[in-house]
């Protein structure tokens, strides 16, 4: 992984330059106006320009920086965990309106406890049941928050 730090810094710098350019282009598609009569695009345009300047200076600084070694990811297991959390969060966002709050929360907990917690089915199912029951009681019954209802009516 020789040169890791340099790569880790230069690639984002290029990404910031691209983002800066995109902000500038997006701003010019609005009315930029003038300094005496600023339009909606002027302020973001200035931000985009400054971002390009700062990113270029950062890229230069890191291009000169001494290379160091390191790893972007801590370990394979850790990366797997991050992906699982993101997939389950996405599942929750996708399924909430269809399955309802309680069922969604139940499935979310079972999946997390089984995959990341490596718990037994008994532990995962009972914990998920308790959490979804109490969270429903707190949010929907006690705080009277209008949470999505699924096929079970809860």
């Amino acid at each position: 992984m020789e040169g890791f730090v340099r790569t880790r810094e230069v690639i984002p710098s290029i990404a910031w330059i691209i983002l800066g350019v995109m902000i500038c282009l997006g701003s010019t598609s609005m009315r930029l106006g003038s300094l005496s009569s600023p339009g909606p695009g002027l302020f973001p345009f200035i931000i985009g320009c400054v971002m390009i300047l700062v990113s270029i200076s950062q890229a230069i600084v890191y291009a000169f920086k001494k290379s160091e070694t390191g790893h972007f990811w801590q370990n394979r297991e850790g990366v797997k965990g991050v992906i699982i959390v993101l997939v389950l969060l996405s599942f929750y966002a996708l399924a909430l309106m269809h399955l309802g709050f309680s069922l969604c929360t139940f499935l979310f907990f079972v999946a997390i406890l089984k995959t990341l917690g490596r718990k037994s089915w008994n532990y995962a199912l009972s914990t998920a049941l308790i959490v979804s029951f109490f969270s429903y009681m707190v949010f929907a019954v006690w705080l009277k928050i209008n949470l999505p209802k699924g096929p079970l009516g809860i």
Binding site: A93, L96, F109, I112, L113, V131, N146, L147
Partner: peptide, 25 residues
């Protein structure tokens, strides 16, 4: 392993509540 799903649940509910919006999730 028990704490972080609870934190995530708080985040999910906390974001959903103000506008009842899945987009905000």
């Amino acid at each position: 392993t028990l704490l972080f799903p609870l934190i995530l649940l708080f985040c999910l509910v906390g974001v959903y509540i103000p506008n009842n919006s899945v987009d905000e999730l």
